[in-house]
Design a protein around this nucleic acid. Sequence first.
DNA 1: ACAATAAGTTACCAAATGGTTACCTTTAAC
DNA 2: GTTAAAGGTAACCATTTGGTAACTTATTGT
Lengths: 114, 114
Amino acid sequence: MHTVCFNADLCVMTKFSALIAGKWKPILLYLVQHGINRFNLMHGYMPTISKKVLTEQLRELEADGLLRREELKAKAPKVVVYYLTEKGASLRLLIDEIISWCMEHMKDELPQDL
Amino acid sequence: MHTVCFNADLCVMTKFSALIAGKWKPILLYLVQHGINRFNLMHGYMPTISKKVLTEQLRELEADGLLRREELKAKAPKVVVYYLTEKGASLRLLIDEIISWCMEHMKDELPQDL
DNA sequence: ACAATAAGTTACCAAATGGTTACCTTTAAC
DNA sequence: GTTAAAGGTAACCATTTGGTAACTTATTGT
């Protein structure tokens, strides 16, 4: 019998995975980083996502503190803007390192044109 | 209409997520790194995983080139050893950086005792 | 001859994740 | 007064992921 056991629910890496592992989350972070920060605008860049799923992914990023959602008080057709929190912005360096690792170690699996 | 679109199936980050996002994969990599490299030994440290799922996760890590599985030719009850490939070992630094980021930015969500 | 051990496999089930299509709400412009 | 646009919801479905419990195979020690 062991006294040391490992539990996936407490694993730091597992928690990190949950932050970015949603199918569209890395793309959403990228878009927001580049000023593409409104619902329909994002949707235009991701032709195959449904509005329902887009909403879900944005809400999860918001709940995890990576994005903030702001509804502008204009009376026109509703305008909503998403932007990175400090936490969301701080991910960027880490993501760059992850991408570097991928370039080095996953060459084969990646599309050639990058 | 945009000419630039984003497709989750081509996203580098999404491919990276797939490497480590299995519920038990980070723990398995950790165990193998620390010499806990046999099926039942691993199972002893992860009381709540089933053998089926353990097999699946190991097979996926193997298919992704992070682990290698070697069946020793002893005649006794089968002995199988798992060890890190070079690719698997190269992940370690990156994982350390991910964990540092988590310590800084996810303090609240993490268990206190680390 | 019989039980034990290592490393699984099989059949089956539940929850989570992502997807489709249609519908809703508010206001401004024609 | 109707239509259009922005940013969604609702009802429903399929696939993937993880889980349980029982069974398997080969060999070795008693």
